[in-house]
């Protein structure tokens, strides 16, 4: 769930915009470079953005009875890297606030930092660490997706705790409370998102592995081997 409009005081809304903008700028720079190198990239990135939007407008089946939205950013970070994901995410967040009334405009900066920058960076980092090791390909995808999801919510808790520190214990005890509310309830949902996107990944490996080979997500022999098993 995104931080919605009006929740953050003005100074914090501005602060997170200031944090987000340089990352976004770097993402736009990378995007331009990719588009110049490969003119076919634009429509593909466009459908990936549409895919993230659709995914995050779906309600995930969940054990607790509450509902949550998959973030979908982990898979995009694995396929396209974290910076381009942040640009796609910025557009998706804008559309979400204007199409579905999720999130907001003044809080877009804060949401971008949690969902578009920190989450994908963590997911991508895990994937880079494990990509060339012997760790199972599906386990890598699972960890990248689930941790990207959890850290999105940890960052959201951090943003809320910074804006509203507790009277006793200040920032830390406020963070404990927000982490308890958002991040802990998110753990089972992150695991479910991890399982689902790993199954999605497996499905892509089985039916259309050339996408993954072209994006160089994993070494080709690994994908081919997985395909013959699937």
């Amino acid at each position: 769930m995104h931080v919605m409009e009006g929740f953050l005081p003005l100074q914090w809304a501005v602060f997170w915009w200031v944090v987000a903008l340089p990352c976004l700028g770097y993402g736009v720079y990378q995007l331009k470079k990719v588009l110049e190198a490969d003119r076919e990239a634009l429509p593909l990135l466009g459908v990936v953005g549409g895919f993230i939007f659709i995914l995050s407008s779906l309600k995930l089946p969940s054990v607790t009875g509450s509902c949550s939205h998959p973030t979908g950013t982990g898979l995009s970070a694995v396929c396209f890297g974290p910076w381009i994901t942040s640009v796609v995410c910025a557009i998706v967040l804008l559309f979400q606030s204007l199409f579905l009334a999720h999130g907001g405009l003044s809080t877009l900066g804060a949401n971008l930092v949690s969902m578009g920058i920190v989450g994908p960076l963590i997911g991508w980092g895990i994937y880079r660490l494990l990509r060339n090791t012997k760790v199972n390909m599906y386990l890598t995808v699972f960890l990248a997706v689930a941790l990207a999801d959890i850290f999105t919510y940890v960052t959201t808790s951090l943003e809320l705790a910074l804006a509203y520190p507790a009277e006793v214990g200040g920032f830390v005890s406020s963070l404990v409370l927000f982490l308890g509310i958002f991040a802990l309830t998110q753990v089972p949902l992150a695991v479910i998102e991890g399982i689902i996107l790993t199954l999605v990944f497996k499905y892509i490996v089985a039916l259309k592995p050339d996408i993954l080979v072209r994006l160089n997500v994993f070494p080709e022999e690994k994908i081919r081997a997985a395909q013959s098993e699937a």
Binding site: L44, P61, L199, I204, K208, I211
Partner: peptide
């Protein structure tokens, strides 16, 4: 069952969106 169906749903939409992107080009 719903976890499985949901994953198939997402996977098939991802592949369909990829093909839509190629058609676009």
């Amino acid at each position: 069952e719903s976890i499985r169906s949901f994953a198939i749903l997402c996977g098939s939409v991802f592949i369909a969106s990829w093909e839509a992107g190629e058609d676009f080009i």
